[in-house]
Design a binder for these strands. Structure first.
Length: 871
RNA sequence: GCCGGUGUGGCGGAACUGGUAGACGCAGCAGACUCAAAAUCUGCCAUGGGUAACCAUGUGUCGGUUCGAUUCCGACCACCGGCACCA
C-alpha cells in the first residue's frame, strides 16, 4: 500500500475494475428484490454543472447502498436531447443541432463516468435517437385513435420580422429576442393531449404517494385545482338575440350558486364570443378588448391591477327571475378558466363588489351573516361579506344555509334545463405542438383530399432530417422539400407532412419506461417494465415538481389504460434535491454593463463589529459589491466547474463534500474550505488504514479476550454500522451518516496499543468504516478494502450485520435533572430498576446540594436515560 | 391574497418517537513538530458573570400543554419557494 493518497490513480484503477467486471449491468434475472434508482436525465447542454454532480451523487449513493443490501439494482442514464438550445447553438456556430447535441453527449458522458457512477451504460438512450422517438409517435397515434390527442387552435407568440413562432423565453419585454420586434399573438392549429380527462385521478392519487414530499404533492394539487360548483345558463335577452342572430344562453360557472339571487350583472372575458360580437359595432369596446389582451401578456406580474370594464350594451335574463341583467366585459375574467364568463354578485364577492362600486351597479344582499358581522352589505368591503351563511331575500330559496341553497338552486336550474352541478379543474389540456425543428416530428400527413391523415405504423418512425441548420426565420422543416413532400397514405395523392414537432416534455414523460426495454425494436416496452416499475427512488430538482412530474404521471396512466404497463403511478418515492449556491459579486461601472466576478477572484471578509461583508478583488484590492448567495449560473459568473474539482482532488472528494455539507433536500452553499475539509478527511482515512496495514496482518478477533478500551472501540464501530444503515436506508440523510463515520475514525485514532487483540479490533473498526463509506466515496474504499487484506473485491461485498453483543455496556450514564434542569450524572448498569436509579440520583452530591433538604414531590425515571426530580 | 417550507453558535449543520441543545465539519485562537513556512497532530471554542468549581440565560417573538418542549398546540414576525384577477 502506498503511503500517499493519490486519487487520480486510485479512481482510474477502481473504474477500470468495475468496467472490466461489468459490475453495474442490471439483470432482471439476478437474485434480490429489485431496486430501480433513477436520477432525472440531463439536457446535454455541453458541460456538467454542480447541480448535476449533486443529483447524480445522491442517486449513486442510494444505488450502491441498496446493492450492498442485496437488492437487484438498476441505475440507468440517458439524454433529454431535443430542445431549443441546440437550435440557438446551431444559429451561432452554423453546426447542425444533431452534431452539437451528440458532441455534447460524448463529452458529458465522459464527465459522468469520471464521477464513478454505478450506471448501467448498456441501457443509455438519447431522446433524439429515432428508435426512441419512434415510440413517441406510435403512442401519439394510439392517443389520436382514442380521442386523447386532438386538434384545436391555440395562441402562439409570433415574431413578424423573422416570420417565426417564439417560445415564451424568447419573448423579452414583449419583443422578439433577436429582432426586437413587437410580438404578436396568432392563432394556429395545434395538437393537444386531454390531460384534463385524468385531472380527477391525477389529483386523487396524490394521496397514495406517501413517498413524495408534501410540498410537491401540494404544488401538484394546486396546479390541477378543483372547484365544486354549478354551471348556470343566462338566456339571451332580446338585444343579444338580435345581435347574434339567434336565441341562446350565456353560460357561467360559479362556486357560489347560493348567491344567484343576488346577481346584478354578468361579466365576460375580453376574448369571449359575446364580447367580440358586441365590439364589432363599438370602437370603444374594441379598443378596450385590445388593451385587455395586451395587458394579460405584458403585465402578468402586476399584483394589483385596477378592475376595469366596459358595458357591452347587451343583456341576458336571470335564469330564475327572468330579470334583465347587463353584460360587461371585465379585465378580471379569464377566458382560459371555466366558461370565460362570471355571474357577478357584488354583495358577496370582493372583485364584483369593487367593480360594482366603480361602475355604480346595484348591490343586493342575499346572505345573512352567521356571526352577525353585518345586516346589509355597504362599503367598504369586509371579508365577512364573502363568507357562507343563510340565504335571505331570495324568494323560495330564503332561509337555507349556503350548502343547502346551492343544492336547491342547482335543482331548480336543472328542472328548467338552465344549469347543473359540475366540478371545474384549473388544469388545461397539454398543447404539444411546437413550431421548431429540433424535436420529435408529429406523425401526421396533410392531404388536400383526405384531410389530416395519421402516418401508418409501418412507416414509423417519421425521421427528423439531421443535416438542417436553422437560421431563425421559421422552421427549417417547412423549407425542406425532402421532408415536406410525401404521398398520402390513404389516396396516394401528393400530400404535405406536418412540420410541427412535439414538446420535449413528451420525450421525458416515459424515458424511465424505455430504460427497461431499451433493446426491444418490436415494442415500446415489454414485460421487463413490469419487473422494474415503479421507480423506487426518483431524484431530481424541485423545478420539475409540477410540469415534468405531472406529464410523466399522465403519460404512464395512458400507457396503463392501453394495457402497456401495469403501474398507474411511475414514481414510488421522490427526492427533490436542493440547489447549489455560491456567492455573487459584481460591480456596475458608470458606463457599460454590470460586471460579475468569480468568487475565486474575490476576498470576502465580514467585519466583526459592523457585521458588514466587505468584498475585494484579489488582484488589485478594489472593492466590489457582495450580492449574497444565489444559484450557480453562467450569467452571474459564480459557477464552479466540476472538472476543476475532480482534477485537483478527485471525484471522491467532490462526492463527499456534496453529501456532507447539507441534507439532500436543502440548498447547498459552495465552500472551497469545505472541499478542502472533505479532502482532508479522505487523507485521514487513508493514513489510518496505512498506519494499521503497514504493521502487518492482525490476528483473528477474539471477542472474549478484549480489554475495556477495545470493547469501547468495537461498540462505537457497531453503533456506527447501525446508524449509517438507518441514515442512508431509511432516512435518506447522508451528512449525519458521514459524521458518524468521522466519529468512528476519531475513536480509532484515540485507540492505542499494539496488543494482538487491540490490532484485531482496529482492523474490524476500519473494515466497518470502509464499508460505511463505500456508497459515498467508492474509489478510495475500493483500494482501502484491498489494503485491509480482503480477497473479495468490495463491489461484491454485502453490508455487514451489527453484532448485538458488541453494543452491550457494563455501565451506562444516566442524567439527573431537578425540575427538568440538568444537575448531575450517575453511572448504573444497564437495565437497573427504577427504584435503584432513583436512590442513586437522590444520593448524588450535587443533587443533595440543590435539594437543600426539600422532599421531592415526584420522581420521573426514564429507564437507562434520565431521572427527573420534581420539588 | 392563497398554499407549502424554513427560522438553532462566527458559518454549514446535528438533536429521528417530547428526555443531556449545539454531534460532525468549516473558520478562529493557543500549543507541539520545524531554522521557518506548509502539511500534520493536540487542546480551546453559544452568550453573560466568576481566577475557578460553578451560576444564570439561550433554539425567530409571545403564550399554552407537560415532571420535562428545538420537538406538541395557539397567535404573531421574518425569510424562501410555488400559484395567483381561479368565479
Amino acid at each position: 500500500m502506498q503511503e500517499r493518497y493519490d486519487p487520480a490513480a486510485i479512481e482510474r484503477g477502481a473504474q477500470a475494475d468495475w468496467n472490466a467486471q461489468r459490475v453495474f449491468v442490471a439483470d432482471e434475472n439476478a437474485p434480490g428484490e429489485k431496486f430501480y434508482c433513477l436520477s432525472m436525465f440531463p439536457y446535454p447542454s455541453g458541460r456538467l454543472h454542480m447541480g448535476h454532480v449533486r443529483n447524480y451523487t445522491i442517486g449513486d449513493v442510494l444505488s450502491r447502498f441498496m446493492r450492498m443490501q442485496g437488492r437487484n439494482v438498476l441505475q440507468p442514464m440517458g439524454w433529454d436531447a431535443f430542445g431549443l438550445p441546440a437550435e440557438n447553438a446551431a444559429m451561432a456556430n452554423g453546426v447542425p443541432p444533431a452534431q452539437w447535441t451528440r458532441d455534447n453527449i460524448a463529452y458529458m458522458k465522459g464527465q459522468l463516468q469520471s464521477l464513478g457512477l454505478s450506471i448501467d451504460w448498456t441501457r443509455e438512450l438519447a431522446t433524439c435517437d429515432p428508435d426512441y422517438y419512434k415510440w413517441n409517435q406510435w403512442l401519439f397515434l394510439r392517443m389520436l385513435e382514442k380521442g386523447i390527442a386532438y386538434k384545436k387552435t391555440g395562441v402562439v407568440n409570433w415574431d413578424p420580422v423573422d416570420q417565426t413562432v417564439l417560445a415564451n423565453e424568447q419573448v423579452i419585454d414583449g419583443r422578439g429576442w433577436r429582432t426586437g420586434a413587437l410580438v404578436e399573438k396568432r392563432e394556429i392549429p395545434m395538437y393537444y393531449l386531454r390531460i384534463t380527462g385524468h385531472a380527477d385521478a391525477l389529483r386523487g392519487a396524490l394521496d397514495e404517494l406517501p413517498g413524495w414530499p408534501e410540498r410537491v404533492r401540494a404544488m401538484q394539487a394546486n396546479w390541477i385545482g378543483q372547484s365544486h360548483g354549478v354551471d348556470v345558463d343566462f338566456p339571451y335577452a332580446a338585444d343579444t338575440e338580435q345581435l347574434l342572430g339567434k336565441a341562446g344562453v350565456l353560460r357561467v360557472f360559479t362556486t357560489r350558486a347560493d348567491t344567484l339571487m343576488g346577481a346584478t350583472y354578468v361579466a365576460v372575458a375580453a376574448e369571449h364570443p359575446v364580447a367580440l360580437a358586441a365590439a364589432a359595432g363599438n370602437p370603444a369596446l374594441a379598443a378596450f378588448i385590445d388593451e385587455c389582451r395586451r395587458g394579460s401578456t405584458m403585465e402578468a406580474d402586476l399584483a394589483t391591477q385596477e378592475k376595469k370594464g366596459l358595458p357591452t350594451g347587451l343583456h341576458v335574463r336571470h335564469p330564475l327571475t327572468g330579470e334583465s341583467l347587463p353584460v360587461f366585459v371585465a379585465n378580471y375574467v379569464l377566458m382560459t378558466y371555466g366558461e370565460g364568463a362570471v355571474m357577478a354578485v357584488p354583495a358577496h364577492d370582493e372583485r364584483d363588489f369593487e367593480f360594482a362600486q366603480q361602475y355604480s351597479l346595484p348591490v343586493r344582499t342575499v346572505i345573512a351573516s352567521p356571526s352577525g358581522a353585518y345586516a346589509q352589505v355597504v362599503a367598504p368591503w369586509i371579508d365577512a361579506y364573502g363568507e357562507a351563511g343563510v340565504t335571505v331575500d331570495s324568494g323560495e330559496f330564503s332561509g337555507l344555509d349556503s350548502a343547502a341553497a346551492v343544492d336547491a338552486i342547482a335543482a331548480a336550474l336543472s328542472a328548467k334545463g338552465l344549469g347543473a352541478k359540475r366540478v371545474q379543474y384549473r388544469l388545461r389540456d397539454w398543447g404539444i405542438s411546437r413550431q421548431r425543428y429540433w424535436g420529435c416530428p408529429i406523425p401526421i400527413i396533410h392531404c388536400p383530399t383526405c384531410g389530416d391523415v395519421p402516418v401508418p405504423d409501418k412507416d414509423l418512425p417519421v425521421r427528423l432530417p439531421e443535416d438542417l441548420v436553422p437560421d431563425g426565420s421559421g422552421n427549417p422543416l417547412a423549407k425542406s422539400a425532402a421532408f415536406l413532400h410525401c404521398a398520402c397514405p390513404k389516396c396516394g395523392g401528393e400530400a404535405r407532412r406536418e412540420t410541427d414537432t412535439m414538446d420535449t416534455f413528451v420525450d421525458s414523460s416515459w424515458y424511465f419506461l424505455r430504460f427497461t426495454s431499451r433493446d426491444n425494436d418490436q415494442a415500446m416496452v415489454d414485460a421487463r417494465a413490469d419487473y422494474w416499475l415503479p421507480v423506487d427512488h426518483y431524484i431530481g430538482g424541485i423545478e420539475h415538481a409540477i410540469l415534468h412530474l405531472l406529464y410523466a404521471r399522465f403519460w404512464t396512466r395512458v400507457m396503463h389504460d392501453l394495457g402497456l404497463v401495469k403501474v398507474a403511478e411511475p414514481f414510488a418515492n421522490l427526492l427533490t434535491q436542493g440547489m447549489v449556491l455560491n456567492h455573487i459579486f459584481h460591480r456596475t461601472p458608470e458606463t457599460g454593463r454590470r460586471e460579475f466576478f468569480n468568487p475565486l477572484d474575490v476576498d470576502l471578509v465580514v467585519d466583526a463589529a459592523t457585521k458588514q461583508a466587505v468584498a475585494t478583488l484579489k488582484k488589485d484590492g478594489s472593492v466590489v459589491t457582495y450580492e449574497g448567495l444565489g444559484t450557480m449560473s453562467k450569467s452571474r459568473n459564480n459557477g464552479v466547474d466540476p472538472n476543476v474539482i475532480t482534477e485537483k482532488f478527485g471525484a471522491d472528494t467532490a462526492r463527499l463534500f456534496m453529501m456532507f455539507t447539507a441534507p439532500p433536500e436543502l440548498s447547498l452553499e459552495w465552500s472551497d474550505d469545505g472541499v478542502l475539509g472533505a479532502n482532508r478527511f479522505l487523507r485521514r482515512v487513508w493514513k489510518a488504514v496505512y498506519d494499521h496495514a503497514s504493521l502487518g496482518a492482525p490476528v483473528a478477533l477474539d471477542v472474549v479476550a478484549l480489554e475495556p478500551a477495545d470493547r469501547d472501540l468495537r461498540r462505537i464501530a457497531h453503533q456506527t454500522l447501525g446508524k449509517v444503515k438507518d441514515d442512508i436506508g431509511r432516512r435518506q440523510v447522508f451528512n449525519t451518516a458521514i459524521a458518524a463515520v468521522m466519529e468512528l475514525l476519531n475513536a480509532v485514532g484515540r485507540h492505542a496499543g499494539d496488543a494482538p487483540q487491540a490490532r484485531a479490533v482496529r482492523q474490524e473498526a476500519l473494515e466497518i468504516a470502509v464499508l460505511c463509506l463505500a456508497p459515498i466515496v467508492p474509489h478510495i474504499c475500493h483500494a482501502l478494502w484491498q489494503s485491509l487484506g480482503q480477497a473479495e473485491p468490495l463491489y461484491r461485498v454485502r453490508w455487514r450485520e451489527v453484532d448485538p453483543d458488541a453494543l452491550t455496556q457494563d455501565l451506562v450514564e444516566v442524567v439527573v435533572q431537578i425540575n427538568g434542569k440538568l444537575r448531575g450524572r450517575i453511572s448504573a448498569p444497564p437495565g437497573s430498576p427504577d427504584v435503584l436509579l432513583e436512590a442513586a440520583a437522590l444520593a448524588d452530591e450535587t443533587v443533595q446540594r440543590f435539594l437543600e433538604g426539600k422532599t421531592p414531590r415526584k420522581v420521573v425515571v426514564v429507564r437507562g436515560k434520565l431521572v427527573n426530580i420534581v420539588v
